[in-house]
């Protein structure tokens, strides 16, 4: 196994395009190193992207924020601008692992690990985040929900890697939130995760809503029908009940060591109501 740490985008692209065996991108390493130790992966080449200066920062871009692929969750949660604009995304990043893990883990890595239970992904999907991918053919921008294609699988090519994730600017009276269910208080993996991002008009009527679910299907789900239950309402109890029903209906979970189909389906609805209330509260200001 070879370990290389390029310092430029071009260098990283060249390494990936020239690689013959299996490769693995390393950013924070909080998944990759664990998988290596557990002998779950045996890559021929590890490309560490942490030394590429261009992807180590958070930059303001047209009122949104571009978050470099090597930015740690801790750096993100300590960034006032991001926290003010996308509190739900930040609280999701702040749930990954532990304080120590967040010092190294990145949201790009959380996305690329391809886990349906990744905490930051439903929040980013709800936010409409856009992923910039770099490869031999240059760069392309893709909606975040298009990245995971199955457990542990993504649509990113072998010669590509994530450059950054863009959290877009948003209208006034918008709010987002993320909650997950875990049996413990921290250091755990979501049994169900729900991210909701919504916008209201001046009279308090919801005009846009995106609802994303984690750990209830093979990939994180963007559930448009669930968002529709909120649009045109004041997010009152009746709307929340409809939301819960739509969310539960969209769940396609499995029975496993972390929870049953029945439990996940039920709790996804319960969490969605709680998340929508927080998001609405934030939108109302």
């Amino acid at each position: 196994m070879k370990y290389l740490a390029p310092t430029t985008i071009e260098g990283a692209v060249r390494l990936l395009s020239e690689a013959s065996g299996s490769t693995r991108i390393l950013a924070g390493g909080t998944d990759t190193i664990v998988q290596l130790n557990a002998e779950q992966i045996e890559p021929d080449l590890i490309v560490d992207i942490k030394r590429i200066g261009e992807i180590r920062g958070i930059t303001n871009e047209n009122g949104g924020f571009r978050i470099g692929a090597a930015v740690s969750c801790a750096e993100m949660t300590e960034h006032d601008g991001v926290r003010d604009l996308w509190p739900g995304c930040v609280e999701a990043a702040g749930l990954i692992g532990s304080t120590q893990v967040q010092g190294r883990a990145t949201i790009a890595g959380n996305l690329c690990n391809g886990s349906p239970a990744a905490d930051s992904v439903p929040a980013m999907v709800a936010a409409g985040a856009v992923v910039r991918i770099i490869g031999t053919d240059g760069s392309r921008d893709v909606a975040v929900e298009k990245i995971p294609v199955g457990p542990g699988k993504t649509s990113i090519g072998a010669d590509e890697f994530v450059h950054s994730i863009f959290l877009p600017p948003r209208p006034e009276r918008s709010g987002d939130a993320y909650l997950r269910f875990i049996p413990r208080t921290e250091m755990d993996i979501a049994v169900v995760g729900v991210g909701i991002n919504l916008t209201m008009d001046a009279s308090g009527v919801c005009t846009a809503a995106r609802v994303a679910l984690g750990a209830v299907a093979e990939t994180v789900l963007l559930v448009e029908e669930a968002g529709d239950t909120l649009i045109g309402t004041h997010i009152d109890d009746a709307a929340l009940d409809n939301l819960a029903r739509a969310v539960s209906a969209a769940c396609k979970p499995i029975n496993d060591k972390r929870g049953t189909v029945e439990f996940r389906t039920r709790v996804a609805g319960v969490l969605a109501k709680r998340v929508a209330k927080i998001a609405a509260e934030r939108a109302r200001g």
Binding site: P183, R184, T185, E186, M187, D188, I189, D256, K257, R258
Partner: peptide, 16 residues
């Protein structure tokens, strides 16, 4: 055994 690790064998953590 399906949960041979501390992630899925859930011992209480301090904050629990």
């Amino acid at each position: 055994m399906q949960n041979p690790g501390f992630l899925d064998y859930r011992m209480p953590v301090c904050s629990d």
